[in-house]
Design a protein around this nucleic acid. Structure first.
Lengths: 128, 128
DNA sequence: ATAAAGGTTCCAGTAAGTGGAAGGTCAAGG
DNA sequence: CCTTGACCTTCCACTTACTGGAACCTTTAT
């Protein structure tokens, strides 16, 4: 399978797949012409990675998850630990963004948004 | 004022202040010894930047906001537009993260997290 | 024969800093 | 006078997870 088909079937851009080869996630064989030749297993791994990344796992998390995925004897506790840490990080990000959102939407609401120069948003940012 | 004091009073790391000089936000004078010498205005600008960044405005947004801040004749509508766009981006990020959170917390809850190898998290990530 | 589509490598850039090395300067203590 | 430690300087590399583009090669279709 050439990279184009893998890209279509995994949903990852070809550039990303080449990058994932660079960082050691897959090691496709090479044809005589130098083209990468992917196996079904490679495709499966790449799709796995795409889904894990979509859930906010970092590349390093993915490395761990992939190793666990391929280890038939792993304990589910190990996977759960990684997932829970990711969940906590996501919660922290959401909380940060919600705090930002609250302040900012308050400012936006209090700004007339017309042609006059006085603006509570700038006043707030500039308060000494 | 040396960079250390500005750092303390603005809350920004000295490294960040030097970076902000690099990208043209401030242009402090230099003493005979080569040390940066900041004015009160510089300090005020840097504190403004720190607050704007804390609200999630990008560096480019900050450039716009700073220009508007220094333009006494600006229309508040111009500021509001930047703020509203930022708000919408924040909302989109929150929505993304909440979708991730929902899926992931569901998976975490369905995983026993014990020594056994079967793990719904990996099963889901590996579904073909 | 040629053109389009797909493949290759490599270099550079993104956002917004952070870390660290090598070295100059300043104020205080002995 | 010397040294120590805090503070300052520049410069280079690294971070995350890719993405864009140039220059070039191969395959397929017309």
């Amino acid at each position: 399978m050439n990279i184009g088909e893998v890209s279509k079937r995994s949903g990852l851009p070809a550039k990303t797949i080449r990058y994932y080869e660079d960082i050691g996630f897959v090691t496709p064989a090479r044809g005589e012409n130098g083209y990468r030749s992917f196996s079904e297993t490679d495709l499966h791994k790449l799709a796995f990675l795409g889904r894990a990344r979509g859930l906010g796992f970092s590349i390093e998390d993915c490395r761990t998850l992939l190793a666990l995925y391929e280890d038939q004897g792993r304990a589910s506790a190990d996977v759960k630990r990684v997932a829970e840490r990711n969940l906590m990080e996501i919660d922290a990000k959401i909380a940060d963004l919600q705090a930002m959102r609250a302040t900012l939407s308050h400012l936006v609401e209090s700004c007339a948004g017309d042609a006059r120069p006085d603006c509570p948003i700038l006043e707030d940012l500039g308060r000494s």
